[in-house]
Design a protein around this nucleic acid. Structure first.
Length: 678
DNA sequence: TTTAGGG
DNA sequence: CCCTAAA
């Protein structure tokens, strides 16, 4: 029972399911925290995306070769038909993808179980593939396995190694601590979010948990509980069951998303759908490469990277490194924007306009109103008269609290539009779904103005970009790699199409897929609608289903590039209020119990790594308020009620860590702590 | 960049 | 949530 040097202690309220975190060292003592990367990721976690990705990519390549590959063909414009076809193909792909996901999900569940259920020996032998085995070992740390069923063995192997340790650690649980914080212990087992085990990379540590479980038996009830939870509560309220934290990818990007939603693996479908649609959009718009690539590059880049903290593909890794740093900043900036023009890039291509012909012929058109224009005569003399009835603006995502006034909504929208316009707009001409790139062509040459064209003419709005369409094309290929990290994953798919001929395609696809995968894997986030506060229960169901935006978000985030320059006015905007959900609170409590107060960055990484909108400062503040809340009468509390149990834990943890801190102060000898724990 | 606190 | 001094 002794843990020497408890100072390093990490609370293990959970009963030791996890291993303790890194010792808490005074910040001065701690070196630069480079840990971020280390801590944040666990190999295993990465596995899943990776494998999935690989699989999907493979499929895509095989099956979709035509689809994605062709797309990129480099043809400047795709015929509407082609687009459609591609979309379909894409759909197919998506289906596959879904399947993949499904597998994954199931895998997750099984993955979880193994830890608890399977005896360590269980699978060691199963994994025949040496490679896989080694991989599994390498990645032993993390629990999340988003991998496919095939990986199951790996997981088990991992689990094997893992559980024993955990168990042991569990056995250690300090009684002293338990006695110290009776209340705290009470809830640990039941409340420990699954995410803990699954997500927390740190859990891997083998240290005994400080606060841990009261059970001196050394049993690992935790696991059992977790298992149960994972199974029974999959869709628990607010996603608590899954992962307490909200990984709001969408936040930043999609924060704008009108419906913040909670995503869960199970909800993958929704995500998938979102992605799917997204893909379609991408496919549809040829332009995306033009402006979007450039635009997104700077602003949106973080989206993919940020989102998938857990994802560690080698390739992605690289990307991440490059982007990570700036990401945060960008993120911050984005947070400030109430409005995100989403998918501008993708959409850019799509801002099709309706054109109405004003000729006599117009009348002859089936749809008088909506019908495009008509050209009276084919001769050179003839003028084509167009009446543009409406311009469709590229998609915009506007995030605004429900409580906001209509006026503010208008303003928000205006800002969004302005943001886009601010950068300057280009008009694209679509003829038969093809973009007419050659500006020097006459309408006639382009075939515009002929009667048959009436319905086939469209205008698109695209962000003003310096690149010439033609140039862009060429440019893309070259810059592809460079832009990859910055560019949104999905968006990237488009590039892929353009560069299908090149070997890069594979990469791009993979990357794109990767992102998707991550999403799937990371769906555990629960996102709350910015303004709307829905009851946890409801939310869980609904929001989870909703998730779509997240995927899109990256793009959304990308949209704002323009804002950057003009965002000055909004700069000072206060971030939208996002009340912590019970699930988040639980995650927070859990993390703090384990890490202690004063390590907010770690807490963030641990429990809110995917919640872009929750900064460590936010977490710290939240903790502060929680402590306060816990100390006041229930009647005085406002907002979504936090379960008393959680509040109790808050107080317990607070007390515990305060004490720890106090001990540490006097430069207490390590043994002192150990003694106490014992 | 993080922490720690006050506002 | 924001703002900032310190570290």
């Amino acid at each position: 029972m002794v843990f020497q040097k408890r100072s390093s202690s990490e609370m293990e309220p959970n009963g030791g399911g996890q291993v303790a975190e890194m010792p808490r060292v005074p910040k001065f003592a701690r070196g630069k925290r480079s840990a971020r990367k280390k801590e944040g990721q666990s190999p295993v976690q990465m596995m899943c995306p990776f494998d999935l990705l690989a699989t999907v990519a493979g499929k895509l390549l095989d099956e979709g070769e035509g689809s994605l590959g062709n797309m990129s063909a480099g043809a400047p414009a795709l015929a509407a038909k082609d687009v459609r076809v591609k979309q379909e193909q894409c759909d197919e792909e998506m289906k596959h993808f879904k399947h993949e996901v499904t597998d994954q999900d199931s895998c997750n569940e099984s993955a979880i179980l193994p830890h608890n259920v399977f005896p360590r020996s269980v699978n060691h032998g199963r994994n025949e593939d040496p490679k896989a085995m080694s991989e599994a070992r390498d990645k032993e740390t993390s629990m999340i396995s988003c991998a496919k069923a095939e990986l199951g063995c790996n997981f088990r192997a991992i689990a094997d190694r893992w559980s024993p340790e955990s168990v042991e650690s569990g056995a250690f649980t300090g009684d002293a601590v338990a006695s110290l914080m009776p209340a705290a212990t009470a809830g640990f087992h039941k409340n420990a979010p699954d995410m803990y085990n699954l997500l927390d990379p740190m859990d891997v540590d083998v240290k005994p948990p400080p606060l841990v479980s009261s059970d001196s038996t050394g049993e690992m009830p935790l696991y059992g509980d977790k298992i149960r939870r994972s199974i029974s509560l999959p869709r628990g309220p607010k996603g608590v069951a899954g992962y307490a934290v909200d990984r709001d990818d969408d936040d930043d990007k999609s924060s704008g998303c009108t419906h913040p939603s909670t995503t869960t693996n199970r909800d993958y479908r929704s995500n998938c759908t979102a992605e799917h649609s997204r893909v379609r959009k991408l496919l549809t718009s040829k332009y995306r490469k033009v402006a979007p690539a450039r635009v997104h590059k700077s602003d949106l880049s973080y989206s993919d990277v940020e989102r998938k903290p857990s994802f560690r593909n080698k390739k992605m890794h690289y990307t991440r490194q490059r982007t990570q740093r700036s990401t945060f900043k960008r993120r911050k900036l984005f947070d400030r924007h109430a409005v995100l023009a989403s998918e501008f890039g993708r959409a850019s291509a799509k801002g099709n306009t309706k054109v109405t012909g004003r000729d006599a012929h117009a009348a002859s058109n089936k749809e008088t109103n909506s019908t495009p224009f008509q050209k009276p005569c084919a001769s050179n003399d003839c003028h084509v008269k167009l009446r543009i009835k409406s311009f469709k603006v590229p998609e915009l995502l506007v995030e605004i609290p429900e409580s906001a006034t209509v006026g503010s909504l208008k303003k928000t929208v205006l800002e969004a539009v302005t943001a886009i316009l601010g950068g300057g707009l280009r008009v694209g001409v679509l003829h038969h779904g093809k973009k007419v790139r050659d500006d020097s062509k006459t309408l006639m040459q382009a075939g515009i103005g002929q009667d048959d064209m009436l319905d086939n003419l469209g205008f698109s709005l695209e962000p003003n970009c310096t690149h010439n369409p033609s140039q862009v094309q060429a440019h893309e290929d070259n810059s592809f790699l460079e832009t990859i990290d910055t560019t949104e994953p999905l968006a990237r798919i488009a590039p892929a199409d353009s560069s299908s001929k090149h070997g890069e395609v594979d990469v791009s696809q993979e990357l794109a897929l990767t992102n998707l995968v991550n999403y799937q894997c990371s769906d555990h986030d629960s996102v709350h609608s910015p303004g709307g506060i829905s009851s946890p229960d409801k939310v869980s169901a609904n929001s989870r289903a909703l998730v779509p935006v997240p995927s899109t978000d990256p793009n959304a985030g990308a949209v704002v590039p323009v804002n950057k320059s003009k965002r000055s006015p909004e700069q000072g905007q206060r971030r939208i209020r996002r009340p912590f959900s019970v699930a988040e609170v639980e995650a927070l409590v859990l993390a703090v119990e384990k890490l202690g107060t004063g390590r907010w960055r770690d807490v963030k990484l641990r429990a809110f790594d995917n919640a872009k909108h929750r900064t460590y400062v936010d977490l710290k503040d939240k903790w502060k308020t929680l402590v306060h809340t816990a100390s006041i009468s229930p009647q005085q509390r406002r907002g979504e009620p936090v379960p008393q149990e959680l509040l109790d834990r808050v107080l317990a943890a607070q007390a515990y860590w305060s004490q720890q801190q106090a001990k540490l102060q006097p430069k207490t000898p390590p043994l002192a702590e150990a003694r106490l724990l014992t």
